[in-house]
């Protein structure tokens, strides 16, 4: 440590002084996360969701609350449940992604953001309205179909409900597609 090593240490530090710092000046710049980042907000496609509540059952913390009612429209076409409540409590969520693993219909995806801090604890719950209206930038975690596409979550191109699923599943083609929302008849897929 003493002798010539003193000078070598000083030279190392001095060379570091000359380099550009690699600090990311938040909030002007944000670090781009990796594509499989399990972000804090969730991406949910209502067109694909059947209200099966598998996500709620799989959640180890029990923070997903799903309340459904019998649906009035077209039960034969698979539109069995009408979702009234779909709450995810972010205050206890550990972002493990088991709910995303559980969803059989590829309706729930992890998000890609990390700025969910709120001033009140009651604001930390994601309600169904927010899930409906949010911009859909799903993370590719546990969704290999998204990894094959040329898709990066932070690139600013949201995905629609048709592009995110494993469409080679036959039953998924015949059920649910386009039947969910009222006023959505124009993108019907002809069902058998």
């Amino acid at each position: 440590m003493y002798g010539l090593e003193m000078v070598k240490g000083l030279a190392v530090t001095l060379s570091n002084l000359m380099r550009k710092p690699f600090t990311t000046s938040y909030p002007e710049q944000r670090i781009r996360q990796h594509p499989r980042f399990r972000g804090e907000e969730f991406t949910w496609y209502e067109e694909r969701c059947t209200g099966c509540a598998s996500c709620a059952k799989y959640c180890p913390l029990g923070i997903i609350k799903i309340v459904t009612a019998p649906s009035e429209t077209a039960p034969l076409q698979g539109d069995k449940y009408r979702l009234e409540t779909f709450d995810i409590e972010l205050q206890r969520c550990m972002f493990c992604g088991l709910c995303v693993e559980a969803c059989p219909y590829d309706a729930l995806f992890m998000g890609s953001g990390f700025e969910e801090g709120q001033y009140k604890r009651t604001d930390l719950v994601i309600t169904i309205d927010r899930l409906r209206q949010a911009e859909k930038n799903p993370s590719t975690w546990f969704r290999p179909q998204l990894e094959g596409m040329d898709y990066r979550p932070g690139a600013g191109r949201p995905l629609g409900w048709r592009e995110v699923g494993r469409e080679n599943w036959r039953w998924h083609q015949h059920e649910k597609a386009g039947m969910r929302l009222a006023g959505n008849r124009d993108d019907n897929v002809s069902s058998a």
Binding site: T13, N16, L17, R19, P21, F22, T23, S25
Partner: peptide, 13 residues
């Protein structure tokens, strides 16, 4: 600030 630059980061800004 100098310490930050020596440590590859910016100081208070």
């Amino acid at each position: 600030r100098l310490l930050g630059r020596f440590q590859n980061r910016v100081g208070p800004n």
